[in-house]
Simulated scan of single mutants.
Amino acid sequence: MDRVARLEDWYRRVYIDGDFDAVGTLFTDSTRAEGLMDGMQVGPEDIAVFAMALVHLVEKPRFRIVKAIESGDWLSALIECEAERPEDGTPLRVMGQLMARFDGESIAEAYNCFDFVSFFEQLGLLPAHTVAIGMSGQQIC
């Protein structure tokens, strides 16, 4: 299975099928991922908890890898994530990027950048236009 197919399979198993035990199947034991939470490097066990919390916020999660580029041991992917708000079925859409270095079949290091501000705005957990409010210098409450 090529790297893009492995990544797609992993996202399907973890985020769609809810198989949180599958998180470790794509990583080495010493893998550290950056970018999921500010200032933190997380390992497979943390990613499983993160994924579980995220999946419980939405219904009908789905994703697609929009673009992927491989160079040597590196894979870069642009990922579109969609779901629905549980209380009213409103569609949610978030974009993200992943850069990962593979060691054989496993990810040895990963760098993530997902638009969590937009995600939490769409869920109603942050005010609309949070980025614009912050850019104006106003405190976001």
Score class of each variant (00 low, 15 high):
residue 1 M to K: 09
residue 3 R to I: 01
residue 4 V to M: 05
residue 4 V to H: 06
residue 6 R to G: 03
residue 6 R to E: 08
residue 8 E to H: 03
residue 8 E to V: 00
residue 9 D to I: 02
residue 9 D to S: 14
residue 13 R to F: 06
residue 16 I to R: 09
residue 17 D to Y: 15
residue 19 D to H: 05
residue 19 D to L: 04
residue 19 D to I: 07
residue 20 F to H: 07
residue 21 D to W: 07
residue 29 D to V: 03
residue 29 D to L: 04
residue 30 S to F: 03
residue 30 S to G: 08
residue 32 R to T: 15
residue 35 G to C: 11
residue 36 L to H: 03
residue 36 L to P: 01
residue 37 M to I: 15
residue 38 D to T: 10
residue 38 D to N: 13
residue 39 G to Y: 03
residue 41 Q to N: 02
residue 42 V to N: 10
residue 43 G to A: 15
residue 44 P to K: 08
residue 44 P to R: 10
residue 45 E to R: 15
residue 46 D to N: 13
residue 47 I to C: 10
residue 48 A to N: 06
residue 48 A to R: 09
residue 49 V to S: 11
residue 49 V to T: 10
residue 49 V to Y: 06
residue 50 F to M: 11
residue 50 F to G: 08
residue 50 F to A: 03
residue 51 A to T: 08
residue 53 A to Y: 00
residue 55 V to K: 15
residue 58 V to L: 07
residue 61 P to M: 08
residue 62 R to V: 02
residue 64 R to G: 10
residue 65 I to L: 06
residue 65 I to W: 01
residue 66 V to F: 03
residue 66 V to W: 09
residue 67 K to T: 01
residue 68 A to M: 07
residue 68 A to S: 14
residue 72 G to S: 04
residue 75 L to T: 00
residue 75 L to H: 02
residue 77 A to F: 03
residue 79 I to D: 03
residue 79 I to S: 08
residue 80 E to Q: 06
residue 82 E to Y: 00
residue 82 E to I: 10
residue 85 R to F: 01
residue 85 R to M: 06
residue 87 E to K: 15
residue 87 E to M: 09
residue 88 D to I: 02
residue 90 T to Y: 13
residue 90 T to S: 04
residue 91 P to L: 05
residue 92 L to Y: 01
residue 94 V to T: 12
residue 94 V to Q: 01
residue 94 V to M: 12
residue 95 M to H: 07
residue 95 M to G: 11
residue 95 M to K: 08
residue 96 G to V: 09
residue 96 G to M: 00
residue 96 G to Q: 08
residue 98 L to K: 01
residue 98 L to R: 01
residue 98 L to H: 03
residue 100 A to F: 02
residue 100 A to C: 14
residue 103 D to I: 01
residue 105 E to D: 15
residue 106 S to D: 04
residue 107 I to S: 05
residue 107 I to K: 04
residue 108 A to S: 08
residue 109 E to V: 13
residue 109 E to F: 06
residue 110 A to R: 00
residue 113 C to A: 14
residue 113 C to P: 00
residue 116 F to S: 00
residue 118 S to N: 12
residue 119 F to S: 03
residue 120 F to H: 10
residue 122 Q to F: 05
residue 125 L to G: 05
residue 125 L to A: 12
residue 126 L to K: 12
residue 127 P to D: 08
residue 127 P to R: 07
residue 127 P to Q: 12
residue 128 A to Y: 04
residue 129 H to C: 12
residue 130 T to Y: 06
residue 133 I to Y: 09
residue 134 G to Q: 13
residue 137 G to K: 03
residue 138 Q to E: 11
residue 139 Q to S: 09
residue 140 I to Q: 05
residue 140 I to V: 14
